[in-house]
Design a protein around this nucleic acid. Sequence first.
DNA 1: AGCTGTGAAGTCATTCACAGCC
DNA 2: GGCTGTGAATGACTTCACAGCT
Lengths: 205, 205
Amino acid sequence: MRKIPEPTVLRLSTYRRCLEDFKAQTNLPFVSSNELGRLAHRNAAIVRKDLSYFGEYGVPGKGYSVDHLLKHILRIMNLRREHRAVLVGAGNLGRALLGYPGFKKLGFRVVAAFDNDPRKVGRKIGEVAIFPVSKLKSEVERKKPAFGLITVPAAAAQESANLLVEAGVRAIINFAPARVWVPPRIVLRNVDLTRELEVASYYLG
Amino acid sequence: MRKIPEPTVLRLSTYRRCLEDFKAQTNLPFVSSNELGRLAHRNAAIVRKDLSYFGEYGVPGKGYSVDHLLKHILRIMNLRREHRAVLVGAGNLGRALLGYPGFKKLGFRVVAAFDNDPRKVGRKIGEVAIFPVSKLKSEVERKKPAFGLITVPAAAAQESANLLVEAGVRAIINFAPARVWVPPRIVLRNVDLTRELEVASYYLG
DNA sequence: AGCTGTGAAGTCATTCACAGCC
DNA sequence: GGCTGTGAATGACTTCACAGCT
């Protein structure tokens, strides 16, 4: 299998969501690249090309089976298994993430949260116990989550990343507004909540 | 001024953050494209090209004046004025956003929040009063915010967008996991909190 | 007829490489 | 010597356009 462009991976996530909407709204068994493109605000050709990287899923003259395509995308995205994750920082953002629909639906399960605020330690967010950060290493080594989610203030982001790497997570999603460095073997993705506001400001200006 | 590639606009936001970190950490007056590229995890040439779209800010042999460059980027991004915004959905995500550092620092000021939950209406998030959604139109018409931030459940996202458009906001940032449609004159940006988790899952698989 | 899959063409973005300046 | 600014070269991604299947 050829190397997949990152834009394609990002769009797959969009297609999945559009397919779920399409299924819920129409319940039709097939969707064409044209229709899916319209839903995802994309050209039909790029939809077909994106999907063709992973095999020939379409039926000429009919389109793509909605159910089969959904399953394929989940398999491609490695989303047909449960993913354990830990949360560093038990503030509003961490809470919001845990409550984000799709978080659970996509198979992500938060097995522990960590915070340095003594008022939070020992409490729970939903089902998830909050531990002091000093327990991060031992808890991660015991529960072996692949994902670490950083939702601490910017100043503590690098330190959190270091702890997560040392404890053995394989991927880090950094929601803090700070650049962090991790070894190349770790998958690092940054989410910046205000970037799109800045971009919108640019386009308004 | 030539048309600016969107990737450039996105990187400007990163450069701004890196410059602030650089200034706080080193207090040096100049930074080279090499150094800034290292901080932003980018090639030095793209740093120079990005900045050159907007004029010649650099000093050959020395680099870029940190302070001047910061000011220039803020001006380019239209961030040297206050931006009023309203929040639709006063849940954890809305709270997290209001508390996000840089939100205020970048000049974004939330002038009202709206929610349909009667237990939230009349309360406040920090300084921000929570109104029923039925008051959205009148409040927006009165306070004239340019930005609407959607932090409601997916099912209510389109409805929220419609109300915001009708009330006259010029830009919408949609944090709900749903595609929304707005007229072309409205600047629409989507933020998907779980997309980067999905992408990380792909790269782990 | 309608739609997919894909090579070829086209477009856009990044990196190279170097002249010119401090 | 070190660094910027930028045309040229390269590379990456998207769209076109059509053969081929149902």
